[in-house]
């Protein structure tokens, strides 16, 4: 077992443990903080995959913006922040069963696919992922249209969020 595999296993266990805490802990502020540690573990996974830019964007956008937005929302709806009452449905075991079946189905499909044990080729020398990604995002031959659509979606979400949450007084 190489050092990289050991690092991967530690990071994966950390990520999955934090994710379990996100869905099971009673206090929602704690759940949001566990989400931060899950997202950080996922960022380390991206770094292990040599996707440096994606790892940085994960830290900046997910941890810096989205997780903080969650903490804001928890505090703005503070009446339910107390731990009174059950945090889960009555038939939570049904949800657990569905989740386990989805995982088992995915694992079954993966082990029946012959590309699953592929190993990564070494990166070419002088490989610059960031400039390639920038070219792909704005080149008309590649993904300029999805990029622009995503920009319009963000604008629409901005306007929609302001409209929905605006306090008409």
């Amino acid at each position: 077992m190489t050092a990289q595999q050991i690092i991967f296993l530690i990071v994966a266990l950390f990520t999955l443990g934090s994710a379990l805490m996100v869905v099971t802990t009673r206090n929602l502020v704690h759940a949001a903080l566990w989400l931060v540690s899950t997202l950080f573990g996922v960022a380390v996974v991206y770094a292990l995959l040599n996707a440096n830019f994606i790892a940085v964007v994960q830290v900046v956008v997910y941890i810096g913006a989205i997780a903080i937005l969650f903490i804001f929302a928890v505090m703005l709806t503070r009446k339910d922040m107390r731990d009174s009452g059950p945090q889960m449905n009555k038939n939570w075991w049904l949800g657990a069963l569905v989740a386990v079946f989805v995982f088992a189905g995915l694992a079954f499909l993966l082990q029946s696919w012959n590309g699953v044990s592929a190993t990564a080729a070494a990166l070419p020398s002088g490989f610059d992922a960031i400039s390639l990604l920038g070219d792909a995002l704005v080149s008309p031959d590649a993904y300029v249209l999805p990029f622009e659509v995503a920009s319009v979606l963000l604008l629409a979400a901005l306007v929609g969020a302001v409209y929905v949450a605006f306090n008409k007084k």
Partner: peptide, 28 residues
């Protein structure tokens, strides 16, 4: 690290998220 490890990690994370969506009572 073989590809299957990453895919299994993603599948497990997806399952945990699905459990949270199905089971939690609080909308946040």
């Amino acid at each position: 690290v073989p590809l299957s490890w990453y895919l299994l990690l993603a599948a497990a994370l997806f399952g945990i998220g699905l459990f949270g969506v199905l089971v939690r009572r609080n909308a946040v």
